[in-house]
C-alpha cells in the first residue's frame, strides 16, 4: 500500500470532533461533558497539524501548541468550578444545574 492521503487525517479529525459533540450533547455527567470538550480540542489540533504538514509550514504547530496550553488551563479552572458546583448543589448532573432559566 502506498502512502496515506492527507484527507484521511482530516476525516479522522472530523469523526473525532463529531464524537466530541455527541458526547457533549448526550452525556449527563459534568465530568464526561468536559472530557468531550477535550476530545473536540484534540480533533482540532489534529486538523491543524495535518494542514501544517500540507503547507510545510510550522505555524500550524504553534497554533496547536497554544490550543494545548489553553485547553490545559481551561481544564484546571473548569474542574475547580465542577468542585464548587458539587459542593453547592450536591449533584453532578448537568440537567440539575439549570437555575439560570427564564
Amino acid at each position: 500500500m502506498g502512502h496515506v492521503p492527507l484527507s484521511w487525517y482530516l476525516i479522522l479529525s472530523a469523526i473525532l470532533f463529531a464524537l466530541g459533540v455527541a458526547g457533549f450533547v448526550y452525556r449527563k455527567s459534568v465530568i464526561t461533558v468536559f472530557m468531550s470538550i477535550e476530545l473536540m480540542l484534540n480533533a482540532v489540533n489534529l486538523t491543524f497539524i495535518a494542514f501544517s504538514y500540507e503547507l510545510h509550514r510550522i505555524d500550524g504547530h504553534i497554533f496547536s501548541f497554544f490550543v494545548m496550553v489553553v485547553a490545559a488551563a481551561e481544564a484546571a479552572v473548569g474542574l475547580a468550578i465542577i468542585l464548587t458546583i458539587f459542593k453547592n448543589r450536591g449533584t453532578l448532573q448537568i440537567d440539575e444545574v439549570d437555575s439560570l432559566k427564564l
Binding site: L12, F34, E38, N45, A50, Y53, H61, S64, F65, M68
Partner: peptide, 26 residues
C-alpha cells in the same frame, strides 16, 4: 499520529501535557 505527520515536539507535548497532566487531573 502527530509523530507520523512530522510534529515531533507536539507529539511529546501532547503526551506530557494532556496525558500526563490534564488526564491525571480528571
Amino acid at each position: 499520529l502527530y509523530l507520523l505527520l512530522g510534529a515531533e515536539f507536539l507529539a511529546m507535548a501532547q503526551m506530557i501535557v494532556y496525558g500526563g497532566a490534564v488526564m491525571v487531573l480528571f
